[in-house]
Structure formats: structure tokens, C-alpha cells
């Protein structure tokens, strides 16, 4: 199978303290997944689950403690960053802090075109920029000479997507791209991702905590919890029929825009985040409604059921049978 990007047992450890007392926190723990060409893959989870750290390791912003990254089947060495800049581009959460408020927005476009030698003459440059801006529903004329404060959040987010498209990337990493955008304008961004996938064949790593938009756009999804992927598969299987108790909790906690679907039961909230990271065995055991004795001591294995990967002791017997 064609794999555009493959992460194999990625690990990120942060250590705190000094020589005498040292605490190690494994923020990303043995995370493996792959992204196919022209696919939207979602990493979903709550804050502190390690999804952004994973993205930063792929982008080369954070050193990888252990594990490998492959691009198109080729191992990525830590020193070679060419694919990282041309083949992978990123979009961030807050469109207002992406752009320097004192700098004109179009200067970012000209700079990227120059750095990557994408066009020779001034006219070619503008044509190139205009072509990319048209993909997101804007024109060069709309952007030229303007400052970030002259745009709304939704527009700025579309501008940063157009900027990411300048190098014709194969993969766009979008870290919570809609969480700062008004709910009424979110779909314009999300629909754009679908269009990029279908028309340009760009793959997107969509990082979010919003499972409703994740269901709407993505092909496959991985649910992360405290540094580990607990469930991974197609969105239909994972979100319509969640198997891991944490996936169920997360899915049920999305407020549905339908007054008939109000929550009836109550939830138990997390103990301290840090304690869950330090937990032996399954890290969800402290809150899991179906907890068993084995969960508190043994880390659950990855179990494959119907093409879905689940990390939970509930399914151990099913896998053996």
C-alpha cells in the first residue's frame, strides 16, 4: 500500500528536575500510524493528549526521542529537512498570531515564492500567488497591501492555507485549524480541506478535539489519550461504533445540536493530568466505567477487530477466540 507518511513507534519524553530528582514524562508513547496520499487523517483527543507534540515531531520542531518517520517509504534522517519544508506545510490554531500585525499579509507570499524559487519574474510571482489564493476563494487583489487586522479570523485562516499551498505540498498539517474560528464560518475552512483532497490530491493531518467536524471531513481517525493511540480506524467505524470506553466518553461528550439528544447521565472528571500519565497499566483505568483488575496493572495490547485498532483489555478474549 502506498504510504505518504508513516510514523513508527514515535516516542517523546520530557524530563523535569535535576540530577538528584528527575521525573520523566512520556508525552507521546509508541505512536504508530500512516497517512495515504489524498487522505484526511485525524488525530483527535483532549488537551494534553500528545496530539500537538506528535505533529511537531513530524514537522521537525521537536526532536524525536525514539522511533522513525518514513516519507514515501524512505527513512527520514534528522539532518535532512528538504521534504519537511517543501513537501509538508503547516497551518496553526490562531490565525491572528500566525501573521505579524505590523507586516503586510502579501509579503509572506512573496517571501515564500522567493525562498523556494517558485517564479522568476514579478508577473509570474503574482500569477502564482493569485492562483493559490483562488483555490481558497480569494484573489491577489483582495490581499495585496493589506494588514492582518483588515481581515476576519476565517479569512486569515484561508490566507494561511493559501500560503501553505505555495510550495505544492503533498501533506498539510493542520493543528486545530477551526477552534478559533467562529462556528458559523467553520464549515468554509473544513470544506476547503475536502476540496484540496479531492481536487489537488493533498493529504491532510487534521488535529482536533472536535469530533463532529472530524467525522464530517476525515477518512480515518486515531483517538489519542494521555500519549497513546487508544483507537484507530475509519471514521464510520470509530465514531459511529466506538469500542474503547474513552472513545465512547469523548464521543458522547460532544454537545449535539439537537435538543432531543441532551445528556442524561453524568460524567466523572479526570483526576490530575499528571497522575494519569504516571499510571501503571491502562491510563484510563481511573475513570473507566468498565474497569477490571487487569487494567490497573497491565498495559493493554493493540487489538485488531474489523480493521480497527483498539487498545483495551475488554477485547483481549475476543482477539484470542
Amino acid at each position: 500500500m502506498d504510504k505518504l507518511l508513516e510514523a513508527n513507534e514515535l516516542i517523546k519524553r520530557y524530563s523535569q528536575g535535576n540530577v538528584i530528582s528527575r521525573a520523566v514524562l512520556t508525552a507521546v508513547d509508541n505512536v504508530s500510524f500512516y497517512i495515504k496520499p489524498a487522505e484526511i487523517f485525524t488525530l483527535a483527543g483532549e488537551s494534553g493528549c500528545g496530539k500537538t507534540t506528535t505533529a511537531k515531531m513530524i514537522l521537525g520542531f521537536e526532536d524525536i526521542t525514539d522511533g522513525e518517520l518514513y516519507h514515501n517509504g524512505k527513512l527520514q534522517s534528522p539532518h535532512e529537512k528538504a521534504w519537511l519544508t517543501e513537501g509538508v506545510q503547516a497551518i496553526f490554531q490562531d490565525p491572528f498570531s500566525t501573521f505579524n500585525p505590523m507586516r503586510r499579509v502579501d509579503s509572506y507570499f512573496h517571501e515564500t515564492v522567493q525562498n523556494f524559487k517558485l517564479a522568476k519574474t514579478k508577473k509570474d510571482t503574482i500569477d502564482w500567488i493569485d492562483q493559490k489564493l483562488r483555490l481558497v476563494g480569494l484573489t491577489y487583489h483582495d490581499v495585496a497591501g493589506k494588514y492582518p487586522s483588515e481581515f476576519s479570523g476565517g479569512q486569515l485562516q484561508r490566507i494561511s492555507i493559501a500560503r501553505a499551498l505555495l510550495t505544492d505540498p503533498q501533506l498539510i498539517i493542520a493543528d486545530e485549524p477551526v477552534s478559533m474560528v467562529d462556528a458559523s464560518l467553520r464549515m468554509s475552512i473544513v470544506n476547503l480541506f475536502k476540496k484540496l483532497r479531492d481536487e489537488l490530491g493533498v493529504s491532510i493531518l487534521y488535529i482536533t478535539h472536535d469530533l463532529a467536524t472530524a467525522y464530517y471531513v476525515s477518512d480515518r481517525i486515531a483517538i489519542m489519550f494521555r500519549g497513546k493511540i487508544v483507537e484507530m480506524g475509519t471514521v464510520e467505524q470509530v465514531l459511529m461504533n466506538p469500542r474503547h470506553p474513552y472513545s465512547k466518553l469523548l464521543r458522547d461528550s460532544i454537545p449535539q445540536a439537537d435538543p432531543k439528544l441532551r445528556w442524561s447521565d453524568t460524567v466523572t472528571l479526570a483526576e490530575l493530568e499528571h497522575e494519569e500519565y504516571m499510571r501503571q497499566g491502562c491510563r484510563f483505568a481511573g475513570r473507566c466505567p468498565l474497569v477490571m483488575d487487569v487494567c490497573k496493572t497491565v498495559v493493554p495490547p493493540d487489538i485488531a477487530i474489523d480493521d480497527v485498532l483498539v487498545k483495551c483489555h475488554l477485547y483481549t478474549e475476543e482477539a484470542e477466540a
Binding site: L185, R186, S188, V190, N191, A212, Y215, L239, I254
Partner: peptide
């Protein structure tokens, strides 16, 4: 967006 419904939504 709603679960179980992938029809196109416009903002």
C-alpha cells in the same frame, strides 16, 4: 455537522 450525516454543509 452531525454524526452519521456526511452531507455537505455550508457556512
Amino acid at each position: 455537522p452531525k454524526f452519521g450525516d456526511k452531507s455537505t454543509r455550508e457556512s
